[in-house]
Amino acid sequence: MAFTLTSPAFSNGAVMPQAQVYSGMGQTGKNLSPPLQWEGAPAGTKSFVVTLYDPDAPTGSGWWHWVVANIPADVTSLPEGAGSGKGGLPQGALEVRTDFGVPGYGGAAPPPGHVHRYVFTVTALDVPKLEVTADSSPALAGFMAHHHRLASAQLTVLYGSGAKSP
C-alpha cells in the first residue's frame, strides 16, 4: 500500500477553502487547520511530522505555515482545528514556531496578484520523537525530520488571485 495523505476538506490541486485561509494580513479566512488523514506508513514508523509549506512566498526561502512534530505512530489523522487551538492534537505532539513567529497553524495569506501552492506533508520517521521545542525553527525541525525520514506523502492546494480548482 502506498503512503498517502488526504483531506475531506479538499483534494489535491484544489483551491484552499476559506476555513483554512489566514484571518489577517488582508485575508478573511477562519484560520482553521484542515482535517488530515494518512495511511500506508512504512514498517518501522515510530512517529510522524506534519508540515504546511508555501514554496512560492516571495522570501527566497518560502514560508512555513505549520509544523507538528512527535505525532505518535498509531495516529493516522488530525481533526479540523487541531493546530488552531481547537483541540485534537495527540498527546505528545508538539507544534514548533512557524514563519509567523509563533507555534500553531497559520493559513494561506499570499500577497495580491499571485497564486501560491500550499504543500501539506506527512513524514514517517524512524524515531519516536524529534529533539525540538516549541521555539525551534521550522528549518531545524525539517533538517531533523529529513535525517529520520522513512517516507513522505503530500497534498497540495492553491490559493491566491485567480486560483481555480481542476
Rank of each mutant, 00 (worst) to 15 (best):
V67L: 01
T51Y: 12
N70Y: 11
D99Q: 02
T45H: 11
G107I: 02
A141G: 08
S47G: 07
S7F: 06
L89E: 14
T98R: 09
M16T: 15
A163V: 03
Y159M: 05
A2L: 12
S33F: 01
K46Q: 15
T4S: 15
A124I: 02
A109P: 00
Y118A: 01
A69Y: 01
G24Y: 11
A43I: 11
Y105N: 13
I71E: 09
L140H: 05
G62Y: 10
T51L: 05
R117E: 04
K164V: 15
M144S: 08
E95V: 06
G60M: 00
T133K: 03
A139R: 13
P55F: 00
L5F: 13
S165Y: 06
A139G: 11
L155Y: 14
D99H: 07
H148G: 03
A141K: 08
T51C: 07
P128F: 04
L140M: 13
Y159A: 11
T6K: 14
Y105V: 11
V119D: 07
P128S: 08
I71Y: 08
G162H: 04
G29T: 06
T4I: 14
D99L: 06
D54F: 10
D54G: 05
L36G: 00
A2H: 10
A108I: 00
V75T: 08
S61R: 15
F3N: 03
G107K: 00
Y22N: 09
P111V: 07
H114W: 09
A57G: 02
T133E: 10
N12T: 08
N12W: 05
Y105F: 15
G107E: 04
G142P: 05
A109Y: 01
T123F: 04
T133M: 01
G13A: 13
F143M: 10
S11A: 15
L94E: 04
L5G: 03
R149S: 13
Q18V: 07
V49G: 00
G113R: 09
